[in-house]
Structure formats: structure tokens, C-alpha cells
Write a protein that binds this DNA or RNA. Sequence first.
DNA 1: CAAAAATCGTGAATTGTTTCACTAATTCTA
DNA 2: TAGAATTAGTGAAACAATTCACGATTTTTG
Lengths: 214, 214
Amino acid sequence: MTDQQKIPQATAKRLPLYYRFLHNLHLQGKNRVSSKQLSEAIKVDSATIRRDFSYFGALGKKGYGYNVEYLLGFFRKTLDHDENTPVTLVGVGNLGTAFLNYNFTKNNNTKIEMAFDADKEKVGEVIGDIPVYHVDELEDRMGSISVAILTVPVSEAQKMTDRLVACGVTGILNFTPARISVPSDVRVHHIDLAIELQSLVYFMKHYPMDQDEE
Amino acid sequence: MTDQQKIPQATAKRLPLYYRFLHNLHLQGKNRVSSKQLSEAIKVDSATIRRDFSYFGALGKKGYGYNVEYLLGFFRKTLDHDENTPVTLVGVGNLGTAFLNYNFTKNNNTKIEMAFDADKEKVGEVIGDIPVYHVDELEDRMGSISVAILTVPVSEAQKMTDRLVACGVTGILNFTPARISVPSDVRVHHIDLAIELQSLVYFMKHYPMDQDEE
DNA sequence: CAAAAATCGTGAATTGTTTCACTAATTCTA
DNA sequence: TAGAATTAGTGAAACAATTCACGATTTTTG
């Protein structure tokens, strides 16, 4: 399942974006789109889009563009949008709650199945259809879920990570500022809100924009 | 203010990370650190760290490493950590609230000064020291704030963006899935939670890890 | 139906980033 | 204090991603 010929990582990161936009076009009843139109809508250079698509073969038609339905079907398979990947969420604070209320399943191939928190107040609640359990029950309830969203306080980050990994988790979306340590077969993506904000400010000051650069 | 000689963007994105880690070391009373130690802690190759630092000149000492206090002071200046950049937040849902509760000012050079929401229930509240105003007052209250965090529903994203830009905002941290349109001098950083999750899942399936790759 | 316009796919050039591998300097050890 | 160990800084190589620019093909227009 390690993929046909490896797609560049930069391309892989854009695939969900393409998928979502194509999905919207499809809902609007559009059945044709060009790399130029896509480019304007999602702000990615049109040559980059054509290059990205070309890794999967010749999906378009010269002089015409791409057929929305065909492309969408293609991506649905490529992104495994038929099966839903179950996800767990640990830490039902504001950020965690935001995730629970976000309707992921719709138009997504992931579904948050359950959430955990240490606060007795929150245990037993159902937020956006998702039950909140006490964190003590983690090991009993995780089953074979392999993806976790980590939205706990930074002081708990490494501890919870270790427990998740022990439960068989191999992918973690880490929203804590901690740079957590994991075995080499576990993938961690960091999203650090404070750093994103600082980074934006730094770029504004030092890289003033004047074209449509990213 | 356009910066001495431009630092690579990849480097610039790591600067806040370096800063935070150095800050922690300093609090712990450490006064010396090597690129190897930094590397292990923040999971960035040590050669990359040395290269990053070298853009700012020779900050370390061979056979010794870097002096924490000196380096920290240097970054404080480089990252303008003395002045606080004022920020506004629009959309006080769960995600917005998470930001308001996040103590940004501490150890950061940004401060959320005010928040706006359309919901009368929320107006008048003070969350984490930050007052919430009605979105109708946006134009009156923004003053000279040039950075905004956008955490509104996707349907409001472009509308609010236009209003923010009209108020003089030139940097937006966009958490909505909308790819908003802005004049070419406005910088937008997108953080799309659904896409981050999908992307993680895609990478897990197609790029199984076995070294300490990113 | 012929000419003009649109648009993909891609080789090659360009640009950006990371990593290797070594030198030179300093610190540490006994 | 001599030799071993450490470690920054960096030229060059390797790798990754983007963008240019053009041929080939199809669609559109008059």
C-alpha cells in the first residue's frame, strides 16, 4: 500500500485542497474546469496544478481542461475517500471542542469516534455527536484507532503521547507547543498556534508582499 | 525595515521555535547549548540549525556551542520581541475562544487586543482579559491594528476579510476553509484544520515512516 | 470547415532547502 | 600542558519544488 510511485510531499499536501474544491464545483453542477480557473480559486500556480495532476497520469484533455466528475472520482479513490478513518481526540478544551463541533465526516474521510478528558465535568457529555470519556478509560476504549488529535495542556503532552503510542496510535496531530518524542514509526504533524501567529508577524515585517507570492 | 539580507523562508519559519526553546533553557538556568542538543529537543537536523543561525553571522563558538543568553538576546532583537504587535480576533466560537484563553503575551511578541463577534450573547464578555465587541463596531474600534485572526464561519470569511482589509489589516491568520481573496500587499497564512487532518492520514498511508524523517 | 483560441502535459531551467563532510578553533581530560 | 574530544561554520553536493515556455491537441468561432 506504499503507493505506486511516490508523489512529492508538497503535492500530497495539496491533494485535500484540490479534492475539496472539486467537490464544491461538483455540487454547483459544474462539469468542466481548467488549471487556470483552479489556480485562481485556490491560489496555486496553474503550472503547479498541472504538474501535480500529472503525477497521477493524463487526467485532462488539451484545449478543454479537466472533467470535474472524472477528476473527483479519481481523487476519491486516491485519497481513500470511501473509507472513513477513525480518529480519537484527547483534551476537550476550547480547541478540542472546536474540533468536535467541526463536521468532519461530511466531505472528509475522517471521523472523530471518541474524545477523552480528565475533567469529570466533561465526561459523559456528547459534543457534536461524539462521546467524551474519562481519560482513565483510554486504554480500554481505543480499540484499533490509529490517529489521534492532541489538544491537551502542554504539561500532559508527552505523557498522553506515550499512552497513545502504547495503544497503537501511529499518527498524531499535535496542537501543543511540546515537541513530543515518539518511536520512529509514528508520524507527528505539529500545529503550533503561537508560532503560526509569530511567524505571520515576522513575515509581514521582513517580507512585505507585492506580488501574489505565497 | 525590509531586512538586512533576506533569510530563507524555511529558516524564518523556524525562528520562533528556536526562540521559545532558548527561552525555556534560559529559565532552567542553562547557559550553554550545542546544535546537537537543540537538534534533539526540537527535532531539526543539527546542520540545518547551524546553517539557520549562520545567516545571522557567527553566533557560536567552535568546540563550545552557543551561549544561551547571548543567542536569546540576539533573537529577541531579530524577532522584535521587545515590542508587542497588537492583534485582533474575529469570530469568538470555540476556536476563537481557544485563542483568547491562550496566554500569548507571555513569551510572545503578539497581544490580542480585542475580539469581535456577531452574537449579542458574547458581546460584552471579557475572555482571558480580552474584551469582545459587536462586529458592527469593527471599523470604529480597530484603530491601527494590522494583524487579524479569522475564526468566523466560512460563509462570513470573504466578507469579514474585505472589512478587515478596509480597516488597514495587512496580515491575516485564516482558520476558515475559504481561500480568501486579498489585495497583493496583504499576507494571508492559511491553517485549515480539516486539511491538516486529512493530510496526516494521507501521509500515514502513503509515506510510512521508519527513520526520523519529517 | 478553416482559422483562432484554449489548454494540457512536460522537458528543461530555475529556485529553494537540506545534508554531507571537512576545517579550524576551542574545550576538556589526565 | 599535550593529546583527545567537541563543535561551529561552510563549500559543495544532493535533493525538492516551482516555474517557464512550448509543442500537441482539442474546442470554439465565424
